[in-house]
Design a protein around this nucleic acid. Sequence first.
DNA 1: AGGCGCTTGTGAAGGCGTGCACAAATCGCG
DNA 2: CGCGATTTGTGCACGCCTTCACAAGCGCCT
Lengths: 246, 246
Amino acid sequence: MSQQRHGNTPGKTGAVPAFPDLPEATIARLPEYLRALHNLAETGADTVSSEGLAAAAGVNSAKLRKDLSHLGSYGTRGVGYDVALLIDQIEYILGLDQRRAVALVGVGNLGHALAGYDGFASRGFRIVALFDADPERVGKPINGLLVRHIDELGRAVVEEGITIGVIATPAGAAQGVADELVTAGVTSILNFAPCVLSVPAGVDVRKVDLAIELQILSFHEHRKASLTALPGGRAEQAGNQEAVGS
Amino acid sequence: MSQQRHGNTPGKTGAVPAFPDLPEATIARLPEYLRALHNLAETGADTVSSEGLAAAAGVNSAKLRKDLSHLGSYGTRGVGYDVALLIDQIEYILGLDQRRAVALVGVGNLGHALAGYDGFASRGFRIVALFDADPERVGKPINGLLVRHIDELGRAVVEEGITIGVIATPAGAAQGVADELVTAGVTSILNFAPCVLSVPAGVDVRKVDLAIELQILSFHEHRKASLTALPGGRAEQAGNQEAVGS
DNA sequence: AGGCGCTTGTGAAGGCGTGCACAAATCGCG
DNA sequence: CGCGATTTGTGCACGCCTTCACAAGCGCCT
Ligand SMILES: NC(=O)c1ccc[n+]([C@@H]2O[C@H](COP(=O)([O-])OP(=O)(O)OC[C@H]3O[C@@H](n4cnc5c(N)ncnc54)[C@H](O)[C@@H]3O)[C@@H](O)[C@H]2O)c1
Ligand SMILES: NC(=O)c1ccc[n+]([C@@H]2O[C@H](COP(=O)([O-])OP(=O)(O)OC[C@H]3O[C@@H](n4cnc5c(N)ncnc54)[C@H](O)[C@@H]3O)[C@@H](O)[C@H]2O)c1
């Protein structure tokens, strides 16, 4: 592991500053801060305190300050954080200054919804290509984009500069699609299929499984139900996700 | 919020054993184990070792053993875990022995996909009611279920025994919908709208934000790109989600 | 019956993340 | 110019989670 301290990399190309190695937990919260900041910017706020931003993002203010301190010192004591500056900083760190090209594989039930979603554009992403294996679907337009056959994946990745692939195929096909994405040069995958993907080192996989989310909620339902019969049935919040009193 | 009932409930119904308080991290993995176990059961396996199950679930075997040990001792040394028994145990812990009734609010782009998804049924959930505020959509059937007006929420929750609500409305409407769900008696919410929800203590909220997932991937892309220019640019796996070598 | 190989369950150690509490820094104002 | 109000940045302690390593337990084979 690299023991690099504060990011003064000696012989570095001056254009790109040393990349801070942020805690994974911090990274996962930055998008939330970013969204809150965009909301604030729309209301015309120039600056925001850690307290205010923390509330908007649904986190502890100390946590927020520590998170932001990892990026550098972009706040002013006694004043707060400059909203526009912080937006730029976070977007830079997240690599959103360039709008990233995304490929979506599997244009079925869920894929349709994703392809038709305009919310990605405003958050830094462009879905530039849709793929499916079903000849029935290939060639048809969705939201102004033609569905292409999966065989064209390799070419499209190069031509469109795709770095992220989204898998919305049945679980049985997901590993195969992942392999094809990796072969084509994609190094980040978002997987909606309920299965474990195996990819080479250097490729990042994130998974979204709605049934798992529901099952976690179900567990807490079960727990709450069994607690109502117990003395001092205190309701606890879920820990991971907030449950703020009104 | 500091209201705490003092109640001595001495005689517990012997049917329900004391509820183990599992680490939150363990709970989040149980659904993954469960899915892997169901896959194994389909292949006809009677038992599985911690090593085997861990591989199928994409985790470390030591972690898996510790997770399972929290449920009790359901393995046999020298042999492994009884697949069927473990499935029953995990399903019981997760409260899936009763099929939970789910309400879906917001039958738009994404809501349609969710309503038409048959994968929930096999994982312990029934979507029993669809709601929307748009009169255009109310009354129309989706996947054999009529879309009802949001005003009927309260009655439906009671009649259908709904405990989980899924929000798939625009962000602006989400807090209002959450309030209505809570008022109606729902104590668990899965939120797809990109916003922070505020709910009273005792209500669990989980959030799925696809843009956040993409932005986390984007960060790692950015990091990887900046590392390629560095000496010894070794690719590390994402930490949270697996990136196993083939 | 006894030994041997295999696998579970767990004690212990280390790392990571969180939140408190406070010093340092900045602004506004008299 | 100094002072108080305000807010950031962070040292520190604590708890949770992960991982290693191994003793204890189980079944099979001889
Ligand atoms: N629909 C939902 O709300 C929902 C919810 C949670 C999870 N999921 C998961 O998302 C995935 C997709 O769900 P869905 O409901 O859209 O399924 P779907 O069957 O409607 O769509 C799957 C699509 O993938 C295509 N496909 C199959 N094999 C392919 C291949 N090798 N290459 C390219 N395309 C291929 C099919 O032609 C089809 O169009 C599934 O894994 C499902 O479990 C869906
Ligand atoms: N479509 C996607 O792939 C996708 C991806 C990520 C996130 N999301 C999020 O999911 C949510 C829904 O997305 P969508 O694309 O389905 O939007 P949509 O506009 O297609 O659908 C929203 C639906 O909610 C209904 N609605 C609005 N206010 C309501 C209210 N007060 N009560 C009940 N129903 C109400 C609308 O009538 C509409 O049918 C949004 O918050 C979006 O940001 C969607």
